[in-house]
Amino acid sequence: MMKRLFFFLCALLSVFRVPAQVTSDVAIADGLRSSGMIYVVVGVMVIIFIGLLFYLYSMDKRISKIEKIKSSKN
């Protein structure tokens, strides 16, 4: 299962396109990206979401545990 998941993710990531040089006068945050600072924000968001998902998972685990205790009592 995990293997299949891993390959699925690799397949997803492999389609990252190399950014084409587009010259346009529409303002977009190139400066931020080239100086690397956007990665800080991405890092912060990834940490927050990993934390939240982990929290959700641990709640799931605890509910499963209570369900087990309850079913063994009945």
């Binding site: 998941l5 993710l9 396109r17 924000v41 990993i50 998972y57």
Partner: peptide, 28 residues
């Protein structure tokens, strides 16, 4: 649940860093 977590993390990273069309009004 693992799939959901991985896809969510992927969507944040790729959603913030990948190239997007340059359009007036909308920008980023």
């Amino acid at each position: 649940k693992i799939l959901a977590s991985l896809l969510l993390i992927y969507s944040i990273i790729a959603g913030l860093l990948l190239e997007v069309p340059r359009l007036p009004i909308l920008h980023e």
